[in-house]
Design a protein around this nucleic acid. Structure first.
Length: 620
DNA sequence: CAGAAACGGGG
DNA sequence: GTGTACGTTTCTG
Protein backbone atom coordinates (compact mmCIF):
# COMPACT_ATOMS: atom_id res chain seq x y z
CA UNK A 1 0.00 0.00 0.00
CA UNK A 2 1.23 3.47 -0.93
CA UNK A 3 0.36 6.98 0.15
CA UNK A 4 0.59 10.13 -1.93
CA UNK A 5 -0.31 13.75 -1.55
CA UNK A 6 -1.83 15.21 -4.69
CA UNK A 7 -3.54 18.33 -5.98
CA UNK A 8 -6.87 17.51 -7.62
CA UNK A 9 -6.68 19.17 -11.05
CA UNK A 10 -9.62 17.45 -12.70
CA UNK A 11 -12.24 14.79 -12.03
CA UNK A 12 -14.54 12.51 -14.03
CA UNK A 13 -15.86 8.99 -13.92
CA UNK A 14 -15.70 6.03 -16.26
CA UNK A 15 -17.55 2.73 -16.33
CA UNK A 16 -15.61 -0.44 -15.54
CA UNK A 17 -17.42 -3.80 -15.14
CA UNK A 18 -20.76 -1.91 -15.13
CA UNK A 19 -19.63 0.13 -12.14
CA UNK A 20 -18.82 3.81 -11.98
CA UNK A 21 -15.21 4.56 -11.11
CA UNK A 22 -14.27 8.10 -10.17
CA UNK A 23 -10.97 9.28 -11.65
CA UNK A 24 -9.07 12.08 -9.94
CA UNK A 25 -6.41 13.67 -12.13
CA UNK A 26 -3.68 15.43 -10.26
CA UNK A 27 -0.08 16.19 -9.67
CA UNK A 28 1.83 14.94 -6.69
CA UNK A 29 2.94 17.14 -3.81
CA UNK A 30 5.87 16.35 -1.54
CA UNK A 31 7.19 12.95 -2.58
CA UNK A 32 7.91 12.90 -6.35
CA UNK A 33 6.58 16.46 -6.52
CA UNK A 34 4.99 17.62 -9.76
CA UNK A 35 4.39 14.24 -11.40
CA UNK A 36 1.09 13.25 -12.92
CA UNK A 37 -1.11 10.87 -10.98
CA UNK A 38 -4.55 9.40 -11.63
CA UNK A 39 -6.37 8.11 -8.54
CA UNK A 40 -9.24 5.67 -9.04
CA UNK A 41 -12.08 5.41 -6.54
CA UNK A 42 -14.53 2.55 -6.98
CA UNK A 43 -16.24 3.06 -3.63
CA UNK A 44 -18.76 5.82 -4.30
CA UNK A 45 -22.39 5.06 -5.17
CA UNK A 46 -25.00 7.21 -6.89
CA UNK A 47 -28.25 8.03 -5.11
CA UNK A 48 -31.24 10.33 -4.94
CA UNK A 49 -33.87 11.10 -2.29
CA UNK A 50 -37.50 10.09 -2.35
CA UNK A 51 -40.09 11.93 -0.32
CA UNK A 52 -42.56 9.17 0.53
CA UNK A 53 -46.33 9.43 0.80
CA UNK A 54 -48.31 7.17 3.12
CA UNK A 55 -46.83 4.06 4.70
CA UNK A 56 -43.05 4.19 4.43
CA UNK A 57 -42.45 0.42 4.58
CA UNK A 58 -44.95 -0.18 1.78
CA UNK A 59 -43.20 2.54 -0.18
CA UNK A 60 -39.85 0.79 0.21
CA UNK A 61 -41.44 -2.46 -1.03
CA UNK A 62 -42.99 -0.73 -4.00
CA UNK A 63 -39.75 0.99 -5.02
CA UNK A 64 -37.80 -2.26 -4.67
CA UNK A 65 -40.29 -4.05 -6.84
CA UNK A 66 -40.57 -1.40 -9.55
CA UNK A 67 -37.01 -0.20 -10.09
CA UNK A 68 -34.77 -2.73 -8.32
CA UNK A 69 -32.41 -0.21 -6.72
CA UNK A 70 -29.04 -1.14 -5.24
CA UNK A 71 -30.23 -0.21 -1.78
CA UNK A 72 -32.76 1.90 0.12
CA UNK A 73 -32.07 3.61 3.44
CA UNK A 74 -34.46 5.57 5.64
CA UNK A 75 -32.97 8.96 6.49
CA UNK A 76 -34.09 12.09 8.30
CA UNK A 77 -33.33 15.27 6.37
CA UNK A 78 -34.33 18.89 6.75
CA UNK A 79 -36.49 20.39 4.04
CA UNK A 80 -36.56 24.18 4.46
CA UNK A 81 -35.47 23.45 8.03
CA UNK A 82 -38.38 21.09 8.74
CA UNK A 83 -37.25 17.59 9.65
CA UNK A 84 -38.80 14.93 7.46
CA UNK A 85 -38.37 11.26 6.64
CA UNK A 86 -36.81 10.61 3.25
CA UNK A 87 -35.69 7.47 1.49
CA UNK A 88 -32.16 7.53 0.14
CA UNK A 89 -32.31 5.30 -2.93
CA UNK A 90 -28.97 3.96 -4.21
CA UNK A 91 -28.30 2.88 -7.79
CA UNK A 92 -25.76 0.66 -9.48
CA UNK A 93 -24.72 3.30 -11.98
CA UNK A 94 -25.05 7.12 -12.25
CA UNK A 95 -26.96 6.77 -15.50
CA UNK A 96 -29.63 4.68 -13.77
CA UNK A 97 -30.68 7.90 -12.02
CA UNK A 98 -32.01 9.77 -15.09
CA UNK A 99 -33.30 6.50 -16.53
CA UNK A 100 -35.33 5.45 -13.52
CA UNK A 101 -36.32 8.72 -11.91
CA UNK A 102 -39.45 9.19 -14.03
CA UNK A 103 -40.74 5.76 -13.06
CA UNK A 104 -39.96 6.59 -9.47
CA UNK A 105 -41.72 9.94 -9.65
CA UNK A 106 -44.80 8.23 -11.08
CA UNK A 107 -45.19 5.75 -8.20
CA UNK A 108 -48.24 6.41 -6.02
CA UNK A 109 -46.20 6.17 -2.81
CA UNK A 110 -43.78 8.84 -4.01
CA UNK A 111 -44.71 12.43 -3.33
CA UNK A 112 -41.52 13.89 -4.80
CA UNK A 113 -37.95 13.07 -5.75
CA UNK A 114 -35.03 15.26 -4.77
CA UNK A 115 -31.35 15.74 -5.66
CA UNK A 116 -31.82 13.65 -8.79
CA UNK A 117 -29.92 16.00 -11.10
CA UNK A 118 -26.58 16.44 -9.38
CA UNK A 119 -23.78 15.17 -11.65
CA UNK A 120 -21.95 12.21 -10.19
CA UNK A 121 -18.51 13.86 -9.94
CA UNK A 122 -20.01 16.89 -8.19
CA UNK A 123 -21.83 14.66 -5.73
CA UNK A 124 -18.52 12.87 -5.11
CA UNK A 125 -16.67 16.12 -4.33
CA UNK A 126 -19.43 17.39 -2.04
CA UNK A 127 -20.07 14.18 -0.12
CA UNK A 128 -16.36 13.55 0.45
CA UNK A 129 -15.65 17.17 1.42
CA UNK A 130 -13.06 17.53 -1.36
CA UNK A 131 -12.02 20.80 -2.99
CA UNK A 132 -10.39 20.82 -6.43
CA UNK A 133 -7.05 22.64 -6.70
CA UNK A 134 -6.40 21.75 -3.07
CA UNK A 135 -4.18 18.99 -1.68
CA UNK A 136 -5.59 15.59 -0.71
CA UNK A 137 -3.98 12.48 0.70
CA UNK A 138 -4.68 9.28 -1.18
CA UNK A 139 -3.94 5.72 -0.12
CA UNK A 140 -4.03 2.55 -2.19
CA UNK A 141 -2.20 0.26 -4.58
CA UNK A 142 -0.09 1.56 -7.45
CA UNK A 143 -1.03 -0.31 -10.60
CA UNK A 144 0.57 -0.49 -14.05
CA UNK A 145 -2.54 -0.06 -16.14
CA UNK A 146 -6.27 0.43 -15.95
CA UNK A 147 -9.03 0.40 -18.57
CA UNK A 148 -9.44 3.79 -20.35
CA UNK A 149 -5.92 4.91 -19.41
CA UNK A 150 -3.70 4.73 -22.49
CA UNK A 151 -1.03 7.31 -21.72
CA UNK A 152 2.55 6.41 -22.61
CA UNK A 153 3.92 8.82 -20.02
CA UNK A 154 6.40 6.66 -18.04
CA UNK A 155 6.26 8.86 -14.95
CA UNK A 156 2.43 8.74 -14.67
CA UNK A 157 1.29 6.96 -11.52
CA UNK A 158 -2.02 5.14 -11.39
CA UNK A 159 -3.40 4.41 -7.95
CA UNK A 160 -6.41 2.31 -7.06
CA UNK A 161 -7.70 3.80 -3.83
CA UNK A 162 -8.60 1.80 -0.72
CA UNK A 163 -10.91 4.56 0.47
CA UNK A 164 -11.92 8.10 -0.48
CA UNK A 165 -9.22 10.79 -0.32
CA UNK A 166 -8.84 13.13 2.63
CA UNK A 167 -8.42 16.86 2.21
CA UNK A 168 -5.16 17.94 3.85
CA UNK A 169 -4.60 21.46 2.54
CA UNK A 170 -7.06 23.80 0.89
CA UNK A 171 -4.76 26.80 0.78
CA UNK A 172 -3.35 28.64 -2.22
CA UNK A 173 -1.25 26.56 -4.63
CA UNK A 174 0.66 27.76 -7.66
CA UNK A 175 0.02 26.34 -11.12
CA UNK A 176 1.86 26.29 -14.41
CA UNK A 177 -0.04 28.03 -17.21
CA UNK A 178 0.48 27.77 -20.96
CA UNK A 179 -1.21 30.21 -23.30
CA UNK A 180 -1.50 29.56 -27.01
CA UNK A 181 -2.82 31.29 -30.10
CA UNK A 182 -3.13 30.27 -33.75
CA UNK A 183 -2.62 32.47 -36.81
CA UNK A 184 -4.30 31.11 -39.90
CA UNK A 185 -4.07 31.82 -43.63
CA UNK A 186 -7.26 33.65 -44.60
CA UNK A 187 -7.52 34.98 -48.17
CA UNK A 188 -11.33 34.86 -48.03
CA UNK A 189 -12.21 36.52 -44.75
CA UNK A 190 -12.77 34.07 -41.90
CA UNK A 191 -10.62 31.01 -42.54
CA UNK A 192 -12.02 27.64 -43.60
CA UNK A 193 -10.32 24.80 -41.76
CA UNK A 194 -10.77 22.40 -44.68
CA UNK A 195 -8.54 24.59 -46.89
CA UNK A 196 -6.68 27.28 -44.96
CA UNK A 197 -3.57 26.16 -43.15
CA UNK A 198 -2.29 27.20 -39.75
CA UNK A 199 0.70 29.51 -40.33
CA UNK A 200 1.81 30.22 -36.75
CA UNK A 201 1.28 28.69 -33.33
CA UNK A 202 2.18 31.03 -30.49
CA UNK A 203 3.01 29.56 -27.07
CA UNK A 204 3.85 31.40 -23.82
CA UNK A 205 4.01 30.11 -20.27
CA UNK A 206 4.54 31.40 -16.75
CA UNK A 207 7.50 28.99 -16.66
CA UNK A 208 9.46 31.06 -19.19
CA UNK A 209 8.35 29.92 -22.62
CA UNK A 210 7.61 32.65 -25.19
CA UNK A 211 7.83 31.45 -28.77
CA UNK A 212 6.15 31.05 -32.12
CA UNK A 213 6.21 27.82 -34.13
CA UNK A 214 6.01 28.39 -37.89
CA UNK A 215 7.25 27.30 -41.30
CA UNK A 216 8.82 30.74 -41.82
CA UNK A 217 10.76 33.21 -39.65
CA UNK A 218 14.15 31.43 -39.60
CA UNK A 219 16.01 34.63 -38.72
CA UNK A 220 13.89 35.54 -35.67
CA UNK A 221 15.20 34.29 -32.31
CA UNK A 222 11.74 33.61 -30.79
CA UNK A 223 10.60 31.52 -33.74
CA UNK A 224 11.00 27.76 -34.05
CA UNK A 225 11.00 27.07 -37.79
CA UNK A 226 9.85 23.65 -38.96
CA UNK A 227 9.35 22.26 -42.50
CA UNK A 228 5.57 21.75 -42.61
CA UNK A 229 2.27 22.60 -40.94
CA UNK A 230 2.14 19.01 -39.68
CA UNK A 231 5.51 19.52 -37.96
CA UNK A 232 4.17 22.69 -36.36
CA UNK A 233 1.28 20.86 -34.75
CA UNK A 234 3.52 17.96 -33.69
CA UNK A 235 6.03 20.35 -32.17
CA UNK A 236 3.23 22.08 -30.25
CA UNK A 237 1.89 18.72 -29.01
CA UNK A 238 5.38 17.75 -27.83
CA UNK A 239 5.82 21.07 -26.07
CA UNK A 240 2.69 20.36 -24.02
CA UNK A 241 3.61 16.72 -23.32
CA UNK A 242 7.11 17.61 -22.15
CA UNK A 243 6.12 20.36 -19.74
CA UNK A 244 3.27 18.91 -17.61
CA UNK A 245 1.29 22.15 -17.58
CA UNK A 246 -1.69 22.36 -15.24
CA UNK A 247 -3.67 24.96 -17.17
CA UNK A 248 -3.86 25.85 -20.87
CA UNK A 249 -5.47 29.16 -21.81
CA UNK A 250 -6.59 30.75 -25.05
CA UNK A 251 -8.81 33.61 -26.14
CA UNK A 252 -12.04 32.35 -27.67
CA UNK A 253 -10.26 29.02 -27.89
CA UNK A 254 -13.50 27.05 -27.30
CA UNK A 255 -14.87 28.40 -30.54
CA UNK A 256 -11.83 29.03 -32.67
CA UNK A 257 -8.34 27.76 -31.78
CA UNK A 258 -9.19 24.27 -30.51
CA UNK A 259 -11.81 23.42 -33.16
CA UNK A 260 -9.41 24.66 -35.84
CA UNK A 261 -6.52 22.70 -34.39
CA UNK A 262 -8.71 19.59 -34.25
CA UNK A 263 -9.74 19.95 -37.91
CA UNK A 264 -6.20 20.56 -39.19
CA UNK A 265 -4.74 17.77 -37.03
CA UNK A 266 -7.31 15.38 -38.44
CA UNK A 267 -6.54 16.33 -42.04
CA UNK A 268 -2.78 16.03 -41.45
CA UNK A 269 -3.02 12.85 -39.36
CA UNK A 270 -1.64 14.21 -36.08
CA UNK A 271 -2.77 12.75 -32.74
CA UNK A 272 -3.92 15.35 -30.23
CA UNK A 273 -3.57 12.84 -27.38
CA UNK A 274 -2.87 15.54 -24.81
CA UNK A 275 -4.99 14.15 -21.96
CA UNK A 276 -3.22 12.92 -18.83
CA UNK A 277 -4.80 9.52 -19.47
CA UNK A 278 -3.66 9.62 -23.10
CA UNK A 279 -7.09 10.62 -24.36
CA UNK A 280 -7.61 13.10 -27.14
CA UNK A 281 -8.98 16.63 -27.24
CA UNK A 282 -12.76 16.51 -26.79
CA UNK A 283 -15.63 18.94 -27.08
CA UNK A 284 -18.35 19.00 -24.46
CA UNK A 285 -21.75 20.19 -25.52
CA UNK A 286 -22.71 23.00 -23.18
CA UNK A 287 -26.01 24.38 -24.33
CA UNK A 288 -25.67 25.59 -27.88
CA UNK A 289 -21.92 25.81 -27.81
CA UNK A 290 -18.97 23.51 -27.19
CA UNK A 291 -16.25 23.60 -24.57
CA UNK A 292 -12.86 22.17 -25.50
CA UNK A 293 -11.53 19.78 -22.83
CA UNK A 294 -8.36 17.86 -22.17
CA UNK A 295 -8.31 15.34 -19.32
CA UNK A 296 -6.09 16.55 -16.52
CA UNK A 297 -5.01 19.69 -18.38
CA UNK A 298 -7.51 22.40 -17.59
CA UNK A 299 -8.49 24.44 -20.61
CA UNK A 300 -9.65 27.95 -19.73
CA UNK A 301 -11.17 30.11 -22.44
CA UNK A 302 -10.38 33.59 -21.14
CA UNK A 303 -12.98 35.22 -23.35
CA UNK A 304 -15.70 33.57 -21.25
CA UNK A 305 -13.95 34.55 -18.03
CA UNK A 306 -13.48 38.18 -19.06
CA UNK A 307 -17.13 38.61 -19.94
CA UNK A 308 -17.91 37.97 -16.30
CA UNK A 309 -14.83 39.61 -14.81
CA UNK A 310 -15.43 43.10 -16.17
CA UNK A 311 -18.24 45.13 -17.64
CA UNK A 312 -17.35 46.41 -21.12
CA UNK A 313 -19.15 47.19 -24.35
CA UNK A 314 -16.93 44.73 -26.25
CA UNK A 315 -14.64 41.90 -25.20
CA UNK A 316 -12.03 41.72 -27.93
CA UNK A 317 -8.55 40.76 -26.75
CA UNK A 318 -7.37 44.31 -27.58
CA UNK A 319 -10.18 45.95 -25.60
CA UNK A 320 -9.75 43.73 -22.55
CA UNK A 321 -5.97 44.14 -22.56
CA UNK A 322 -6.25 47.93 -22.78
CA UNK A 323 -8.71 47.98 -19.89
CA UNK A 324 -6.55 45.79 -17.64
CA UNK A 325 -3.09 47.18 -18.40
CA UNK A 326 -3.71 50.58 -20.01
CA UNK A 327 -1.54 49.67 -23.01
CA UNK A 328 -2.37 49.26 -26.69
CA UNK A 329 -1.51 45.91 -28.26
CA UNK A 330 0.33 45.42 -31.54
CA UNK A 331 -2.38 45.37 -34.16
CA UNK A 332 -2.61 43.54 -37.47
CA UNK A 333 -5.99 43.83 -39.18
CA UNK A 334 -7.57 40.38 -39.21
CA UNK A 335 -8.51 40.38 -42.87
CA UNK A 336 -4.94 41.30 -43.94
CA UNK A 337 -3.12 38.48 -42.15
CA UNK A 338 -2.63 36.49 -45.35
CA UNK A 339 -1.09 39.54 -47.07
CA UNK A 340 1.42 40.02 -44.23
CA UNK A 341 2.24 36.30 -44.44
CA UNK A 342 2.77 36.43 -48.21
CA UNK A 343 4.93 39.57 -48.07
CA UNK A 344 8.10 37.72 -46.95
CA UNK A 345 9.56 41.00 -45.68
CA UNK A 346 8.90 43.57 -42.94
CA UNK A 347 5.13 42.91 -42.73
CA UNK A 348 5.91 39.22 -42.16
CA UNK A 349 8.08 40.15 -39.18
CA UNK A 350 5.24 42.32 -37.89
CA UNK A 351 2.94 39.33 -38.12
CA UNK A 352 5.38 37.26 -36.02
CA UNK A 353 5.50 40.07 -33.43
CA UNK A 354 1.73 40.17 -33.45
CA UNK A 355 1.45 36.42 -32.96
CA UNK A 356 3.84 36.47 -30.00
CA UNK A 357 2.16 39.56 -28.56
CA UNK A 358 -1.31 37.99 -28.68
CA UNK A 359 0.00 34.90 -26.91
CA UNK A 360 1.91 36.82 -24.24
CA UNK A 361 -1.03 39.19 -23.68
CA UNK A 362 -3.34 36.21 -23.21
CA UNK A 363 -0.91 34.82 -20.63
CA UNK A 364 -0.78 38.17 -18.83
CA UNK A 365 -4.57 38.32 -18.69
CA UNK A 366 -4.60 34.78 -17.30
CA UNK A 367 -2.09 35.65 -14.59
CA UNK A 368 -4.20 38.66 -13.65
CA UNK A 369 -7.62 37.00 -13.58
CA UNK A 370 -7.18 33.32 -12.79
CA UNK A 371 -6.24 33.78 -9.10
CA UNK A 372 -9.73 34.94 -8.15
CA UNK A 373 -11.24 32.04 -10.09
CA UNK A 374 -8.90 29.66 -8.29
CA UNK A 375 -10.11 31.14 -5.02
CA UNK A 376 -13.73 30.67 -6.06
CA UNK A 377 -12.87 27.05 -6.88
CA UNK A 378 -11.45 26.61 -3.38
CA UNK A 379 -14.56 28.14 -1.82
CA UNK A 380 -17.30 26.74 -4.08
CA UNK A 381 -15.62 23.34 -4.33
CA UNK A 382 -16.37 22.52 -7.96
CA UNK A 383 -13.75 21.85 -10.66
CA UNK A 384 -11.79 24.84 -11.93
CA UNK A 385 -12.82 24.06 -15.50
CA UNK A 386 -16.49 24.31 -14.46
CA UNK A 387 -15.99 27.45 -12.35
CA UNK A 388 -14.46 29.34 -15.28
CA UNK A 389 -17.49 28.50 -17.41
CA UNK A 390 -20.23 28.99 -14.81
CA UNK A 391 -22.49 31.99 -14.44
CA UNK A 392 -21.95 33.63 -11.04
CA UNK A 393 -25.45 32.56 -10.05
CA UNK A 394 -24.46 28.95 -10.67
CA UNK A 395 -21.30 29.41 -8.61
CA UNK A 396 -23.41 30.66 -5.71
CA UNK A 397 -25.82 27.76 -6.18
CA UNK A 398 -23.16 25.03 -6.07
CA UNK A 399 -21.71 26.68 -2.99
CA UNK A 400 -25.14 26.48 -1.37
CA UNK A 401 -25.61 22.85 -2.45
CA UNK A 402 -22.41 22.02 -0.56
CA UNK A 403 -23.44 24.05 2.47
CA UNK A 404 -26.85 22.33 2.44
CA UNK A 405 -25.15 18.91 2.45
CA UNK A 406 -23.10 19.93 5.49
CA UNK A 407 -26.23 20.58 7.58
CA UNK A 408 -28.46 17.79 6.20
CA UNK A 409 -30.67 20.25 4.32
CA UNK A 410 -32.21 18.72 1.26
CA UNK A 411 -31.63 20.80 -1.88
CA UNK A 412 -34.66 22.27 -3.72
CA UNK A 413 -35.23 20.94 -7.24
CA UNK A 414 -34.30 22.94 -10.30
CA UNK A 415 -37.28 24.68 -11.90
CA UNK A 416 -39.19 22.76 -14.56
CA UNK A 417 -39.48 24.33 -18.01
CA UNK A 418 -42.84 25.85 -17.11
CA UNK A 419 -41.68 27.21 -13.76
CA UNK A 420 -38.68 28.71 -15.53
CA UNK A 421 -40.89 30.48 -18.07
CA UNK A 422 -43.21 31.82 -15.35
CA UNK A 423 -40.25 33.15 -13.41
CA UNK A 424 -39.00 34.94 -16.53
CA UNK A 425 -42.22 36.95 -16.66
CA UNK A 426 -41.91 38.24 -13.11
CA UNK A 427 -40.19 41.59 -13.03
CA UNK A 428 -38.99 43.16 -9.84
CA UNK A 429 -38.49 46.84 -9.08
CA UNK A 430 -34.81 47.69 -8.63
CA UNK A 431 -33.01 50.14 -6.38
CA UNK A 432 -34.08 53.73 -5.79
CA UNK A 433 -32.57 56.18 -8.27
CA UNK A 434 -32.72 59.96 -8.03
CA UNK A 435 -31.74 61.42 -11.39
CA UNK A 436 -28.70 63.68 -11.00
CA UNK A 437 -29.30 67.41 -10.92
CA UNK A 438 -27.57 68.87 -13.95
CA UNK A 439 -24.70 71.26 -13.31
CA UNK A 440 -21.24 71.46 -11.86
CA UNK A 441 -21.45 70.77 -8.13
CA UNK A 442 -18.80 71.54 -5.55
CA UNK A 443 -18.18 70.38 -1.98
CA UNK A 444 -20.16 67.20 -2.35
CA UNK A 445 -20.54 64.72 0.47
CA UNK A 446 -20.79 61.06 -0.45
CA UNK A 447 -22.70 58.45 1.50
CA UNK A 448 -23.05 54.75 0.81
CA UNK A 449 -24.10 51.59 2.55
CA UNK A 450 -21.53 48.86 2.84
CA UNK A 451 -22.89 45.69 1.14
CA UNK A 452 -26.48 46.95 1.43
CA UNK A 453 -28.25 43.91 0.03
CA UNK A 454 -26.23 41.18 1.74
CA UNK A 455 -26.61 43.12 5.01
CA UNK A 456 -30.37 43.37 4.56
CA UNK A 457 -30.68 39.65 3.86
CA UNK A 458 -28.93 39.00 7.16
CA UNK A 459 -30.57 41.73 9.29
CA UNK A 460 -34.11 41.04 8.04
CA UNK A 461 -33.58 37.27 7.75
CA UNK A 462 -34.75 37.29 4.12
CA UNK A 463 -34.94 33.63 3.16
CA UNK A 464 -37.60 31.40 1.56
CA UNK A 465 -37.46 28.93 4.44
CA UNK A 466 -38.69 31.50 7.00
CA UNK A 467 -41.19 33.33 4.79
CA UNK A 468 -44.74 33.13 6.10
CA UNK A 469 -47.12 31.49 3.65
CA UNK A 470 -50.86 31.53 3.99
CA UNK A 471 -51.18 27.93 2.85
CA UNK A 472 -49.26 26.85 5.94
CA UNK A 473 -46.83 24.91 3.77
CA UNK A 474 -44.02 25.75 6.18
CA UNK A 475 -45.57 24.37 9.33
CA UNK A 476 -42.76 25.48 11.62
CA UNK A 477 -43.41 29.08 10.64
CA UNK A 478 -47.14 29.40 11.35
CA UNK A 479 -50.26 27.38 10.77
CA UNK A 480 -52.65 30.23 10.14
CA UNK A 481 -52.56 34.01 10.13
CA UNK A 482 -54.57 34.12 13.38
CA UNK A 483 -51.73 32.47 15.27
CA UNK A 484 -49.13 34.89 13.97
CA UNK A 485 -47.53 37.27 16.42
CA UNK A 486 -46.18 40.15 14.38
CA UNK A 487 -43.45 40.67 16.98
CA UNK A 488 -41.87 37.45 15.76
CA UNK A 489 -41.50 38.69 12.17
CA UNK A 490 -39.66 41.23 10.07
CA UNK A 491 -42.28 42.74 7.77
CA UNK A 492 -41.13 44.15 4.44
CA UNK A 493 -42.26 47.59 3.21
CA UNK A 494 -44.69 47.81 0.27
CA UNK A 495 -45.57 44.11 -0.04
CA UNK A 496 -45.65 43.27 3.70
CA UNK A 497 -43.91 39.94 3.35
CA UNK A 498 -43.25 38.39 6.74
CA UNK A 499 -39.92 36.77 7.58
CA UNK A 500 -39.75 34.97 10.89
CA UNK A 501 -36.93 36.26 13.10
CA UNK A 502 -35.99 32.74 14.26
CA UNK A 503 -34.67 30.35 13.18
CA UNK A 504 -32.05 32.05 10.99
CA UNK A 505 -32.81 31.32 7.33
CA UNK A 506 -30.50 29.04 5.38
CA UNK A 507 -29.28 31.71 2.97
CA UNK A 508 -28.82 34.49 5.56
CA UNK A 509 -26.77 32.09 7.66
CA UNK A 510 -24.57 31.14 4.71
CA UNK A 511 -24.03 34.79 3.70
CA UNK A 512 -23.30 35.60 7.32
CA UNK A 513 -20.57 32.96 7.38
CA UNK A 514 -19.12 34.21 4.10
CA UNK A 515 -18.96 37.80 5.39
CA UNK A 516 -17.50 36.70 8.75
CA UNK A 517 -14.83 34.73 6.94
CA UNK A 518 -14.08 37.76 4.80
CA UNK A 519 -13.61 39.90 7.91
CA UNK A 520 -11.19 37.29 9.32
CA UNK A 521 -9.18 37.25 6.09
CA UNK A 522 -9.07 41.05 5.91
CA UNK A 523 -7.72 41.09 9.46
CA UNK A 524 -5.02 38.57 8.50
CA UNK A 525 -4.23 40.69 5.46
CA UNK A 526 -3.72 43.78 7.64
CA UNK A 527 -1.46 41.88 10.01
CA UNK A 528 0.69 40.27 7.34
CA UNK A 529 4.06 41.82 6.63
CA UNK A 530 4.75 39.73 3.54
CA UNK A 531 3.67 41.32 0.28
CA UNK A 532 2.87 38.07 -1.56
CA UNK A 533 0.89 36.81 1.41
CA UNK A 534 -1.07 40.06 1.60
CA UNK A 535 -1.91 39.83 -2.12
CA UNK A 536 -3.06 36.24 -1.58
CA UNK A 537 -5.37 37.25 1.28
CA UNK A 538 -6.63 40.13 -0.84
CA UNK A 539 -7.68 37.77 -3.64
CA UNK A 540 -9.35 35.52 -1.07
CA UNK A 541 -11.40 38.32 0.43
CA UNK A 542 -12.36 39.56 -3.05
CA UNK A 543 -13.64 36.09 -3.95
CA UNK A 544 -15.78 36.00 -0.80
CA UNK A 545 -17.10 39.50 -1.51
CA UNK A 546 -18.07 38.39 -5.01
CA UNK A 547 -19.86 35.36 -3.63
CA UNK A 548 -21.77 37.37 -1.00
CA UNK A 549 -22.76 40.00 -3.54
CA UNK A 550 -23.94 37.37 -6.00
CA UNK A 551 -26.26 35.90 -3.43
CA UNK A 552 -28.76 38.74 -3.30
CA UNK A 553 -29.33 38.96 -7.05
CA UNK A 554 -29.73 35.24 -7.24
CA UNK A 555 -33.17 35.22 -5.56
CA UNK A 556 -34.47 36.70 -8.79
CA UNK A 557 -32.37 34.48 -11.10
CA UNK A 558 -34.89 32.21 -12.80
CA UNK A 559 -32.76 29.04 -12.81
CA UNK A 560 -31.94 29.30 -9.11
CA UNK A 561 -32.95 26.38 -6.90
CA UNK A 562 -33.70 28.75 -4.00
CA UNK A 563 -35.44 31.26 -6.29
CA UNK A 564 -37.91 33.44 -4.43
CA UNK A 565 -39.61 36.38 -6.06
CA UNK A 566 -40.90 37.45 -2.64
CA UNK A 567 -37.35 37.55 -1.25
CA UNK A 568 -36.10 39.47 -4.31
CA UNK A 569 -38.91 42.01 -3.90
CA UNK A 570 -38.41 42.34 -0.16
CA UNK A 571 -34.68 43.02 -0.55
CA UNK A 572 -35.08 45.86 -3.03
CA UNK A 573 -38.09 47.30 -1.14
CA UNK A 574 -36.11 47.43 2.10
CA UNK A 575 -33.17 48.82 0.12
CA UNK A 576 -35.29 51.67 -1.24
CA UNK A 577 -36.68 52.38 2.22
CA UNK A 578 -33.20 52.46 3.74
CA UNK A 579 -31.66 54.86 1.27
CA UNK A 580 -34.66 57.19 1.38
CA UNK A 581 -34.50 57.22 5.19
CA UNK A 582 -30.79 57.98 5.07
CA UNK A 583 -31.43 60.86 2.65
CA UNK A 584 -34.14 62.26 4.91
CA UNK A 585 -31.86 61.96 7.91
CA UNK A 586 -29.12 63.84 6.05
CA UNK A 587 -31.62 66.57 5.17
CA UNK A 588 -32.21 67.25 8.87
CA UNK A 589 -28.60 68.36 8.99
CA UNK A 590 -28.79 70.49 5.83
CA UNK A 591 -27.46 67.94 3.33
CA UNK A 592 -29.53 67.60 0.16
CA UNK A 593 -29.04 64.74 -2.24
CA UNK A 594 -28.39 65.76 -5.84
CA UNK A 595 -28.02 62.16 -7.04
CA UNK A 596 -28.78 58.75 -5.57
CA UNK A 597 -28.51 55.20 -6.86
CA UNK A 598 -29.48 52.02 -5.00
CA UNK A 599 -27.04 52.02 -2.11
CA UNK A 600 -25.55 55.49 -1.99
CA UNK A 601 -26.00 59.18 -2.71
CA UNK A 602 -24.13 62.45 -3.13
CA UNK A 603 -25.32 65.53 -1.33
CA UNK A 604 -24.71 69.23 -1.04
CA UNK A 605 -24.65 71.23 2.15
CA UNK A 606 -27.41 73.89 2.14
CA UNK A 607 -27.94 75.27 5.64
CA UNK A 608 -30.72 77.55 4.37
CA UNK A 609 -32.80 74.42 3.89
CA UNK A 610 -33.45 75.01 0.19
CA UNK A 611 -33.09 72.16 -2.25
CA UNK A 612 -31.82 72.60 -5.80
CA UNK A 613 -35.42 72.24 -6.95
CA UNK A 614 -36.53 75.06 -4.65
CA UNK A 615 -33.81 77.30 -6.06
CA UNK A 616 -34.72 76.37 -9.60
CA UNK A 617 -38.40 77.11 -8.91
CA UNK A 618 -37.40 80.47 -7.43
CA UNK A 619 -35.36 81.33 -10.54
CA UNK A 620 -38.28 80.55 -12.78
C1' DC B 1 -45.65 43.95 -31.84
C1' DA B 2 -44.24 39.56 -30.39
C1' DG B 3 -41.64 35.81 -30.95
C1' DA B 4 -37.71 33.88 -33.53
C1' DA B 5 -33.14 34.15 -34.86
C1' DA B 6 -28.69 35.92 -34.59
C1' DC B 7 -24.85 37.42 -32.07
C1' DG B 8 -20.72 37.51 -29.30
C1' DG B 9 -15.16 36.15 -29.63
C1' DG B 10 -11.70 34.31 -33.24
C1' DG B 11 -8.64 34.96 -38.58
C1' DG C 1 -24.64 12.27 -19.24
C1' DT C 2 -27.66 12.55 -12.02
C1' DG C 3 -26.39 16.94 -19.19
C1' DT C 4 -28.20 20.61 -22.81
C1' DA C 5 -25.36 28.87 -21.89
C1' DC C 6 -27.14 33.49 -21.81
C1' DG C 7 -28.50 38.02 -22.15
C1' DT C 8 -29.21 41.29 -25.63
C1' DT C 9 -30.05 42.99 -30.20
C1' DT C 10 -31.92 42.49 -34.72
C1' DC C 11 -34.93 40.28 -37.89
C1' DT C 12 -39.32 38.50 -39.52
C1' DG C 13 -44.14 37.36 -40.01
Amino acid sequence: MEKRKMIIIDIDYITNNDKAVVRLFGKTKGEKEGQHIIALDETFEPYLYVQPKGDIEKCIDQIEEKIEPKNIVKVEMKDFQIKKQFLKVFFNHPQDVPQKRDTLRGLECVSNIREHDIPFYRRYLIDNDLFPMGVVEVEGELIDSYPTITSEDKSLEIMKLNHSPKMVDNSYQSFSILSFDLEVYNPKGMPDSSKDEIIMIGAASNTGIAKVISTKGEDLDFVETVPTEKDMIESFVNLIKENNFDIIVGYNSDNFDFPYLRDRAKILGVDLDLGMDGSSLKFLRRGYTNAATLKGLIHVDLYLVMRRYMNLDRYTLERVYLELFGEEKIDVPGDKIYQYWDSDSEPLNQLFDYSLDDTVSTLKIAEQTLPINLELTRVVGQPFFDITRMATGQQAEWYLVRKAFEIDEIVPNKPTGQEFRNRKHASNVGGYVKEPEVGLHENLVQFDFRSLYPSLIISKNISPDVLYREDGSLDNIATDIGSVDEEDYYISPEHHYMFKKFPIGFIPSVIGNVLDERVRIKAKMKKSTDYTERMMFDVQQQALKRLANTMYGVYGYSRFRWYSFECAQAITAWGRENIKNAMKYAENYGFYAIYADTDGFYCKYRPDGLTEEDLKARRE
